[in-house]
């Protein structure tokens, strides 16, 4: 009896300490994210510019239903999401698995080289991507020499090939970034588990799917949520490589928001409404991912 009471006291003491650990961070997020988000939400129910704001109810949200550019940009980012995130995360996992092998030569070099794309400046890499995929660029020359195509492809002028270029660019830039999360997590997995599997006679593929993937689930969940969020808020690549073209085939939601806020006659309240639709969408996807992946 006394022991359980003691235990209970200990538990609640620990819980309080736990709260003390999390509250400073939570407070900062409430001040610097949720308070401004609240302001933005309030703004999304208004119309007007600057000091001339009027309450407009759901008008901004109703407007979304007939906004073709919004629909196009939403479809674009969902296409990028469906194509790119699975490819990138699988590739990142495979690379992390290969690089976690202690007998691998040049590990440091491979690890550094694969990470570097996300550190490379956007200016130089978009310059390179645009010139590589030019009509007389490197990619067409390569494919022609390999006899894979007979006439050069105008990559950035065709809606689907332009989308493909964006997917390639995203994969190029972010695979190594995701890989280092997996690598860090693999470091935390006890090496003896792998050794036991080797003695067990499990092949490389079996070890990968039966041990690595389940063990990495918490981090896979993290990268899935972050990549989903990143893709839905995509801006850099489409802004710098295709500028949303051809004919809006690659325009992203964030780019549309940017135009509405800073290039066009400013429509912050409408931009805020779009932000909230994205927010709800990402939150919904994240919720599903948490359901599937966040089990202890």
């Amino acid at each position: 009896m006394a022991k359980t009471l003691n235990n209970l006291k200990l538990k609640s003491r620990q819980s309080i300490i736990g709260w003390a650990f999390v509250i400073p961070a939570a407070l900062l997020i409430f001040i610097f994210y949720f308070y401004p988000i609240g302001r933005a939400l309030f703004l999304s129910f208004q119309t007007g510019i600057g000091a001339n704001m009027q309450f407009a109810g759901l008008a901004n949200y109703r407007r979304l239903l007939s906004d073709n550019l919004f629909k196009t940009s939403l479809t674009n980012v969902l296409t990028f999401l469906a194509l790119q995130v699975p490819i990138m995360l699988t590739l990142a996992l495979a690379l992390a698995y290969l690089l976690n092998d202690k007998t691998l030569k040049f590990r440091g070099f491979f690890r550094t080289a694969l990470f570097l794309p996300c550190a490379t400046s956007l200016v130089s890499y978009s310059l390179i991507f645009r010139s590589m995929f030019a009509l007389d660029g490197f990619v067409n020359a390569l494919l022609t020499n390999l006899n894979l195509i007979t006439s050069p492809i105008n990559w950035l002028a065709n809606p689907w090939t332009a989308k493909l270029v964006i997917v390639l660019a995203l994969t190029w830039r972010w695979t190594g970034y995701n890989m280092i999360f997996y690598l860090a997590a693999l470091q935390n997995i006890d090496a003896s588990i792998f050794e036991a599997a080797v003695i067990d006679g499990a092949g490389a593929a079996a070890r990968f799917f039966r041990i690595v993937v389940p063990m990495l689930r918490p981090i896979i969940l993290l990268t899935a949520i972050v990549s989903t969020n990143g893709t839905l808020q995509l801006f850099d690549e489409t802004f710098n490589i295709t500028n949303g073209g051809p004919a809006n085939a690659t325009i992203s939601i964030s780019q549309y928001i940017y135009r509405l806020s800073f290039q066009y006659s400013p429509r912050f309240s409408y931009a805020a409404a779009i932000s909230f639709v994205v927010f709800i969408l990402v939150a919904f996807l994240a919720m599903i991912q948490m359901r599937v992946g966040d089990q202890r």
């Binding site: 994210y33 401004p36 988000i37 933005a40 972050v226 939601i253 928001i257 940017y258 805020a272």
Partner: peptide, 15 residues
């Protein structure tokens, strides 16, 4: 807290 990362920065930068 996770929800906080799902809002584009452009939407909160003015506040």
């Amino acid at each position: 807290l996770l929800l906080s990362m799902m809002i584009p920065f452009a939407a909160i930068m003015i506040p």
